[in-house]
Design a protein around this nucleic acid. Sequence first.
DNA 1: CCCTGATTCGC
DNA 2: GCGAATCAGG
Length: 169
Amino acid sequence: MDWSAEAIETLKALWAEGHSTAEIGRRMGVSKNAIVGKAHRLALPARPSPIRRDGVSQPITSGRALFTPPAQPAPQARPAASEPVAPRAMAAPRPAAAPARAPVAVAPQPSSLRAFPRVSSRTCCWPIGEPGTSGFHFCDGGALTGKPYCAEHAAVAYVRARDRREDAA
DNA sequence: CCCTGATTCGC
DNA sequence: GCGAATCAGG
C-alpha cells in the first residue's frame, strides 16, 4: 500500500466516520490488517474493541507464529481499557459530525419528534470536507423521507456489507 | 462460520 | 514502516 498523504487522509476520514477496519480496507483496496496497522501507527483513536487484552494471562506465543526465546525486558503493565467511547451500534453508519446543522429550536416541545431538526427539515446531513476546517459543510440536498441523507449520499451510506463495491465514495 | 479490532514481529 | 498471522471476543 502506498500510504500517500491522500491515502492517509482517506483512511482518517473513513476511520472518523466509524467504518470498520475491514470495510475501510475494502474501500481502499487493502487488507483490514493494513488499515488496523496503519491506524495504530498513526495513533488514530481506537474504537471499541471486542476483545480486551489485559495484563492477565498471555500463554500465547504471541501474535505471529515463531519460536523466538522470550527475552522479556519490559513487562509494561497496562492500565487496561478506558474511554467507553461512542457506541457505533447505529442502524446505519453515520458520518462523523452529523448534527451541528440547523440547530433551530431544540427547546423541549410536547412532540418529541419536533425536537430533531433532521426529521422535519429534510436536508441531507452528509458532511463534505474535513470537519473543523473552513471548507467543511453539509450536503444541502433534500433528504429522502425517513432518511438523513439525500438519495446520492444515502446510496453511499447504506451499502450492504456483502454488496459493497470499491466505488460509491 | 461470519464478523470485529489489537498485537506481534519478520520483512 | 508495513502488514500477515494470530489472538480474542461477539
